[in-house]
Amino acid sequence: MDRRAFREGFPLFVPAIPFGLVIGVAAMTSQMPAAGGWLTSVVIFGGASQLATVTLAGTASIWAVMLAALVINSRHLMYSAALSSTFSRQPRWFAVLGPFVLIDQVFALMATKTHLEPTEFRRYYITVGLFFYLTWILVVSVGMMLGPVIPVSWRLDVAPALMFTGLVVLAIDRSPALVAAIVGGSVAYLGINLPERLGIVAGAVAGVAAGGVAEMIAMRRGER
């Protein structure tokens, strides 16, 4: 275990605590069995996709649920690609197991640690990865315990949308991201009456495509 990894990882985990609690609460109001809601933390381990899964479960087709979660997690391809050269110096077992915990925060920390010696990098990665994984499961479990005692009139069913709004706002740092958000939301709204909540998929695909086009335009104009 690497003490520095704890010290540097903890501040990144604190903001994720309310997110985990909301997922726990949402899991208890989901139409997915409670055990399934809890297992999203264990087998998926990705906040936004977990929240999408438990929120959509039972109200959208299972294909729409799976597609929405997988599209959300497709950004991890970039994290993995960015660390691939660093992992090429690691043993095979670590290259196979390590990516399971490659979430946003772990990537943010590890992207600044690629200069470390392979053994040091591995120890740091395992420490932050396990720390985030185990504490995340704990926080979601606490949220699930709190869920049933919170009155329905508090309208915590809106909390996931509020949290998503915060995430979107924080993610909009450049004009292509704004274009992706506007197009994604607008197309989803236009497709609100589509069966099985396919409006989400339509909005996601349209938003990603629009964001990609905006990126190309921005690149040509010299925006970073």
Binding site: I182, G184, I192, A210
Partner: peptide, 26 residues
């Protein structure tokens, strides 16, 4: 592919916000 993946978060999450609010059971 890199350009398309950059904005997955804002695109998907905004679609989720709109649909989850519009179809609230309340």
């Amino acid at each position: 592919v890199q350009l398309a993946l950059r904005n997955v978060g804002p695109a998907v999450l905004s679609a989720l916000i709109v649909v989850s609010i519009s179809t609230s059971s309340f």
